[in-house]
Design a protein around this nucleic acid. Structure first.
Length: 552
RNA sequence: GUGCCCGUAGCUCAAUGGAUAGAGCAUCAGCCUUCUAAGCUGAGGGUUACUGGUUCGAGUCCAGUCGGGCGCACCA
């Protein structure tokens, strides 16, 4: 609908003789009495025109030229808002678009022909996924879905490292458990992974090799077994939530020399050095971030000769630029908040267009069961596991709960609420609306023989004029703009909120307007409206990765 | 100490700088001989943590104060 208003207003401003570079904003007033849409353009430009905003608004109105039968009323209100009331004819006629476009309804085209990458989860394979990781996983997956609606070809990538210190500790942890299994008790180090899964992996190795590896002092075998087993369990957990990555980027490739015998890491160092941002001291190689106004320099290569995580991170992002992505989204938890500014700075120094990089940070999750808060730590082995949560509440509730709050807000995951099969649970409220429509369409076919899916008498929609029908129809037309807003903010929560309002408007319509019992043409029209509602719910559910049950 | 996020109804949370700050839950009062009551209608409930500032207009932007979360490694 924005696209409907903007050109008309632009042209009216021209005819009125107003020159402005201010952006024209179309908004929906909180109250219907202020119209379906309004613009504050007269308020914004009044000052530079040195005019009274209300008079200016009146003058703009006189130059507005809309297509016939679209606008019922235009008025100046308050300090100088211009409010637009749509005709019911226009709303209902526009709804035909929902039915014509079907699954494609709501899609945009700004990303057509462009490629985007969304990096998410990216947990190193040191243990099963925790609930906290789950939030980032679902958020990333929904963001990828959102971006894809705008035409981008999206790559979903998982970045991991199987060569670092944590993986070494993992291997050692397994070896300790293995030795225990072989009857060679050793004291288990405080710093190592204590989860039950470590014992399972050790048991697995024992059943394959017996005690043959007990004298082997290297951890390689243990590490590799652990990695294989854990990675496949991580993928299995993600699969349960419908999360599938297209690409797994192993950080270790950045340590591997190319034909010229140089690693990506070395190239980063040399490139930064040419720009004067590298120095060696205290036995380490430093990124001179003090030159950028920071308090301390940052280590890129440790005195042990190993790169710190920052160096490969920079190299990894360069690989994204080399793969020519127009948009790059990084999704990670609040604990990694300090990770990206240095990377961005380095990329800027090296001349990359960092505007393409978007960061989506999700705040933490606390889980409450029976009002008790759970705390987690992978290392201590008392983590709250994502798999357990999915077992408990199901994939749909898991996904929806993770994104039904703004990513900037701490999430309180109430397990009891997620399990409830009642109206308190937002998952059921949304899905019930869909199931109810399916049931209605089945019943209608049986009672009247009319199937709105195989008919195209969409013009009948114009018979509908009641407030409940118009409000629902209006909401359905808003869907494309809602997706765009959600994409812009990288915020799936906006979609949850929107779909909730659609469900609510449908329930009211259903309550107030008899459908099957109505006169034949009205009945058909209402079934078309129900069908359009179902289409929007389905399309929205697909973005969120929530199932659309046909009956409940 | 410092960087980021948060502070809005009893609870969980909304509100691209707009008009009288909204939902859900909980509480109270109604609506099923009629298409799914897993639903709908209505009522009560607020100094948007505090103090200044910018603006025609601030929950929103800026500065400061107070409170909570997460970071601040030659871990990732």
């Amino acid at each position: 609908m924005h696209d409907f208003f903007i050109p008309v207003i632009k042209s009216a401003l021209r005819s009125t003789g107003i020159e402005t570079n201010k952006q024209i904003i179309i908004e929906q007033p909180a109250e219907k009495k202020f119209g379906d849409f309004s613009t504050n353009i007269a308020l914004l430009t009044a000052k530079e025109c040195r005019r009274n905003p209300r008079e200016l608004a009146q003058q703009i109105i006189e130059h507005l030229v809309f297509p016939p039968d679209t606008i019922a009323k235009i008025e100046v209100a308050g300090p100088g808002f211009i409010n637009f009331h749509l005709t019911s004819f226009f709303i209902m006629r526009s709804l035909q678009q929902v039915l014509h476009e079907g699954d494609a309804y709501g899609k945009g085209s700004v990303g057509t022909g462009k490629r985007a990458i969304v990096e998410y989860v990216s947990a190193n394979p040191t243990g099963p996924l925790t609930i906290g990781r789950g939030r980032g996983g679902v958020l990333g997956d929904c963001i990828a879905n959102l971006i894809a609606t705008q035409g981008y070809e999206v790559t979903r990538e998982y970045y991991f490292n199987d060569a670092g210190r944590q993986m070494q500790i993992l291997g050692e942890s397994v070896r300790f458990r293995y030795l225990e299994r072989c009857g060679k008790e050793k004291e288990f180090p405080e710093t190592h992974y204590k989860g039950e899964y470590i014992k399972d992996i050790a048991e697995n190795i024992y059943s394959e090799h017996g005690a043959a590896l007990a004298e082997d002092s290297t951890v390689l075998t243990f590490k590799e077994s652990a990695e294989t087993i854990i990675f496949s369990s991580i993928k299995k957990t993600l699969e349960r939530l419908g999360i599938r990555h297209d690409s797994f980027f192993n950080e270790h490739t950045l340590y591997t020399p190319d034909e010229a015998g140089i690693t990506a890491n070395q190239r980063v160092i040399e490139a930064l050095r040419e720009n004067g941002f590298i120095a060696e001291y205290d036995g380490a190689t430093w990124f001179l971030t003090t030159k950028l106004g920071q308090e301390k320099d940052k280590v890129l290569v440790k005195s042990t000769g190993e790169p710190s995580y920052r160096l490969p991170d920079i190299g990894y992002h360069i690989s994204k630029f080399e793969r020519d992505f127009a948009m790059m989204v990084n999704v990670f938890g609040a604990d990694h908040i300090d990770e990206y500014p240095d990377v961005i700075e380095a990329l800027k120094i090296l001349g990359y267009d960092t505007e393409r990089i978007k960061i989506a940070i999700n705040q933490f999750v606390t889980t409450t069961v029976d009002g008790q808060t759970l705390k987690m730590s992978t290392r201590k082995g008392n983590a709250d596991l994502l798999d357990d949560l999915i077992d408990d509440v199901g994939a749909d509730a898991t996904r929806l709960f993770f994104i039904m709050r703004s990513k900037d807000s701490h999430l309180n995951f109430d397990v009891e609420l997620a399990k409830k099969q009642s109206k308190e649970n937002p998952v059921f409220y949304l899905q019930y609306a869909h199931a109810r429509i399916c049931s209605l369409l089945r019943m209608a076919l049986q009672e009247t023989g009319f199937d709105p899916e195989s008919n195209t008498e969409y013009h009948l929609l114009q018979l509908l004029t009641s407030p409940a029908e118009l409000q629902l129809g209006f909401a359905l037309l808003d869907y494309p703009d809602r997706i765009k807003a959600s994409v812009r903010l990288l915020e799936p929560q906006k979609m949850v909120e929107y779909l909730h309002s659609v469900a609510e408007l449908f329930h009211r319509f259903y309550q107030e307007c008899p459908i099957i019992k109505a006169e034949a043409d009205i009945c058909k029209a209402r079934l078309f409206l129900a069908l359009a509602t179902r289409q929007v719910l389905r399309n929205g559910f697909r973005i969120l990765g929530v199932s659309a049950p046909e009956s409940m």
